[in-house]
Nucleic acid binder design. Structure first.
Length: 582
RNA sequence: GCCGCGUUCGUCUAGUGGUUCAGGACGCUGGCCUCUCACGCCGGUAACACGGGUUCGAAUCCCGUACGCGGUACCA
């Protein structure tokens, strides 16, 4: 049976979504200047007339059209706007540490929703059963709460469209997958990993895009049903056209065009019965009434799959807004390898949430009046998503430091700072934990602070030569290995940290005392200090790791940098000796 | 490799074809203030990736190239 989207001709969103004419200068009438660009998104509900993001490949064209259209009158809108509130969401995956990028996306989603009187949803995308954890989910709640970013609906507070955890919505996805299969938009696939692997290798050898070849697409449905009933392992794949291109509007980028031939027959339902991101995301966005999908540009390449899903279900598209990605100083996507990315780290390192949020608000964005210091409320009040800049902003700790300093000296009283200090670490709770460790080492009360001061310090101050010891290269290797070990470590307690070092003693063939020497320096800043493992626990995983990382950087500056081949070899060696039979 | 998205001082950015030999901020730097340091204040440094086009006029519009990033999973 022929399905409409398999037509060889270009698939395009329904014509009301996309202006058919190309944007060229010659086509733009002088007066009324840009009237023809006015075609509000069907589900857009905005406080001012808004144009279609439009056209032409250049973003400048799109933005110019946007801006000009903005000043045109509402009367020129030929398509009625669908009334109804704006709904945005963030859909983080609860794996690992809460990411600063999640707060970034949350901020813009919240601001957009609030600015337009809408709602902002937090949805947990835990469809990857292998990696998702409840602990990580809690950390996301905590991170957003710390940042002062509220959500209107979410797993913890409920709402009219729950549940908000995808692992609890399985029946919904089952039903929708069935609908797609029924409509011929998706199909069961029984190919095993071996076939897929050789297929991929062949395609790569022929310099083609690796893409499922549709082997199971035309299987007799009745036969397929029998095999499924017999319990044969299978997945459900999205049926993708072989020819033509997908054209979809992005609010900030104009039209995004991607040839269908480069889009894989994405798996929608895994063998374990769980949906993949693509399916769950589209179904949930629709069911939760999401009108504006504001997400990172890493998703652009899967847009066609999402479009196909909306189309397959007969749903109109939400408005897509792909934000730039936060970058490391070397311009790569922000990663913990090169930058602190865990929100917990910013908290533990003594940053103020309002400063962090303020700083994130100036990543790829400036307030219309150019203000650099602003509250969340001020940010929201003047928020204009069309001011977002597309070049990926480098997350610059130096500038965040300046901003954080300004908050400390300009917007808080000494008494308020004291409160913050208490809420941070300078409190009885921490002191009471440190005291038993220090007690035996005290001669006078005055000995305590020098001994425990490292628990409250930011940057440590110690001679790098001492950290390096007699064999700097070896020290660097130890730090690197310990860091890899500690990155995985959960829970992060004195006992588990001890376990890591004991493992290293065995594997590296050194005495604990010798191994630990550089770690005392890197973690506490002194050769002699409180017990290391307990200190690590008190400091927390984020700060401990960061200090080890800083130690590594100091060694690198001394010429003991681990990079290229050496690093690769070490990593392989580490994998073999440490992680192989875990 | 292929596909996509980008590209204004080192970094964050302003910039809606003429008012800009490009403005602000961080950083760095010179000076002032000052019991030190910091803060603050005054100054300096430094950019339209490149090449074609369109135009009387281009950072701004178009095309190409280069570079960067993202994607290319039964991860999200």
């Amino acid at each position: 049976m022929k399905t409409p989207h398999l037509d060889p001709c270009s698939w395009r969103p329904p014509s009301h979504l996309v202006q058919p004419q190309p944007c060229t200068r010659a086509l733009i009438p002088l007066r009324p200047r840009f009237g023809r660009f006015l075609a509000p998104h069907p589900i857009g509900h905005l406080s001012r007339p808004r144009p279609k993001p439009y056209l032409g490949s250049g973003c400048h064209a799109a933005r110019a059209a946007l801006r000009h259209a903005r000043i045109s009158s509402t009367k020129e809108c030929s398509i009625p706007m669908r009334p109804g509130p704006v709904v945005t969401r963030i859909a983080p995956s609860p794996t690992g540490d809460p990411h600063i990028g999640t707060v970034f996306m949350a901020l813009f989603n919240l601001a957009f929703a609030r600015r337009h009187g809408g709602r902002f949803i937090l949805r947990i995308e835990d469809t990857d059963q292998g990696r998702s954890t409840r602990e990580s989910e809690e950390a996301i709640f905590a991170a957003l709460t710390w940042a002062g970013i509220p959500w209107d609906e979410g797993p913890d507070k409920g709402g009219p469209h729950g549940p908000y955890r995808q692992s609890e919505r399985l029946p919904i996805y089952e039903e929708h997958v069935a609908r797609l299969v029924q409509a011929g938009r998706a199909y069961p696939c029984f190919c095993n990993a071996a076939r897929l692997k050789s297929l991929r290798e062949e395609q790569l050898a022929r310099k083609e895009d690796p893409r499922y070849d549709g082997h199971c697409r035309h299987l007799d449905p009745a036969l397929a049903a029998t095999r499924i009933a017999a319990g044969e392992a299978h997945v459900i794949r999205l049926s993708v056209p072989d020819e033509g291109e997908c054209v979809v509007p992005d609010r900030l980028r104009g039209e995004i065009r991607i040839a269908w031939s480069t889009v894989d027959h994405q798996i929608l339902r895994k063998t374990d019965g769980f949906p993949t991101y693509h399916l769950a995301n589209v179904v949930d966005d629709r069911l939760m009434g999401v009108t504006h999908v504001i997400r990172g540009e890493e998703w652009i390449s899967s847009l066609p799959k999402h479009v196909l899903l909306y189309e397959g279900f007969g749903w109109e598209l939400p408005e897509f807004i792909h934000m730039p990605l936060l970058r490391n100083p070397d311009k790569s996507k922000l990663s913990k390898r090169k930058n602190p990315t865990s929100v917990t780290w910013y908290r533990e390192a003594g940053y103020l949430p309002e400063a962090v949020v303020n700083y994130l608000g100036m990543m790829g964005y400036t307030l219309p009046d150019g203000r650099e210091m602003f509250t969340l409320e001020e940010f929201i009040a003047s928020f204009d998503i069309d001011r977002v800049v597309l070049g990926g902003p480098v997350f610059d700790l130096a500038k965040l430091n300046w901003l954080n300093g300004r908050y400390l000296r300009e917007s808080l009283s000494p008494a308020q700072i004291l409160e913050r200090l208490h809420a941070w670490r300078l409190n009885d709770e921490l002191l009471l934990k440190a005291l038993p460790l220090a007690q035996k080492r005290l001669t006078t009360l005055a000995d305590f602070m020098p001994m425990a001061g490292f628990l409250l310090r930011g940057a440590l101050d110690y001679p790098t030569a001492e950290l390096a010891g007699s064999d700097g290269a070896c020290t660097a290797r130890w730090l690197r290995i310990a860091l890899w070990e500690l990155e995985q470590l959960r829970p992060f307690t004195a006992a588990t940290v001890r376990g890591v070092f004991e493992g290293m003693v065995e594997k590296e063939g050194v005495a604990l005392r010798e191994l630990l020497a550089p770690f005392f320096l890197a973690v506490t800043g002194a050769k002699v200090s409180l017990p290391l493992f307990d200190s690590c626990e008190l400091l927390g995983a984020d700060v401990t790791r960061r200090r080890l990382h800083e130690g590594l950087e100091r060694l690198a500056a001394m010429g003991h940098e681990l990079k290229g081949k050496t690093l690769k070899a070490l990593e392989e060696d580490y994998r073999r000796r440490y992680t192989e039979n875990r």
